[in-house]
């Protein structure tokens, strides 16, 4: 164990702050957890933030405007290790869905009225800077964030789940949603969420991103065989991991 405490910062760019909140939801353990580290900056809950050098910066959100990019690059320089916290930072998540729709479909909604916002192509953090670790999920599981911090404090290599959601889903004795006619993305999606959605019979939309071992082609083939339309398959696959599937169109046509 290190004798000096790790200097840590929590920051958010475009996002809903839910991932930072998920960390805070460790209520009973939070004070002990903060004791283990030197929490230098956390603008979401702290008024005074020491913004110098960090051992680890946890960043929530994606790059959706020019300010995000500036903040991100500045933090990357200050951080020894950068941790992408949550689905927006990891894959672009739902805000990146506008990459797959025409500007006419959304421009009347907000951005044309707010001229001070200079929007850019919404993209996850790793498009712009080097990312050392990723804690996936929309939002990430609170225990996962806690275990990550415990590991880095102990000087252990943090372990991020790389098994499909099915592992936990079967362990929770759920009926397989693919067998009951739902377009579940569990087999290609990274687990670690304790299959929270499928436990409630709500199919997986892939918020935790793809496993290293995901077979997209095979799942697309299976969903097609089960009678799901191309539109549904594309919508689902693009909701959270669209930018990580640049070949989806090609796979769909095979």
């Amino acid at each position: 164990m290190k004798t000096t405490k790790l200097k840590i910062g929590f920051y958010g760019i475009t996002g809903c702050a839910g991932c930072q909140l998920s960390f805070i939801f460790n209520e009973d353990e939070l004070l002990s957890l903060i004791d283990l580290i030197d929490l230098r900056a956390f603008p979401f809950i702290k008024e005074f933030n020491l913004e110098e050098k960090f051992d680890y910066v946890f960043i929530e959100g994606l790059v959706a405007n020019k300010n995000d990019l500036k903040t991100l690059k500045k933090l990357r320089e200050k951080a020894d290790k950068l941790v992408a916290l949550g689905a927006c930072a990891h894959t672009g998540c739902v805000p990146a869905y506008r990459n797959f729709t025409l500007k006419e479909n959304y421009k009347h909604l907000l951005y044309m009225k707010r001229t001070e916002i200079q929007d850019v192509k919404p993209t996850p953090v790793d498009t712009h800077v080097n990312v050392d670790y990723t804690i996936p999920g929309c939002p990430p599981d609170k225990n996962e964030i806690m275990n990550f911090i415990k590991d880095i404090v102990k000087g252990k290599e943090p372990k991020i789940n790389n098994n499909p959601v099915c592992v936990e889903c079967r362990r929770n004795n759920n009926v397989c949603l693919l067998d009951v006619g739902k377009p579940c993305l569990g087999p290609i999606t990274r687990g670690g969420c304790n299959s929270v959605c499928t436990n409630g019979k709500f199919e997986c939309w892939g918020c935790r991103g793809l496993t290293d071992d995901a077979d997209i082609k095979l799942l697309v083939k299976l969903l097609k065989e089960k009678g799901f339309s191309e539109k549904i398959i594309k919508q689902r696959m693009r909701s959270f991991v669209g930018l990580k599937l640049p070949n989806l169109e090609k796979i769909m046509n095979e």
Binding site: P164, P187, D215
Partner: peptide
């Protein structure tokens, strides 16, 4: 194996 999603349902069941 070309049909296998590596989901591990077989071993869990």
């Amino acid at each position: 194996s070309s049909m296998c999603l590596s989901c591990s349902a077989c071993t869990a069941l």
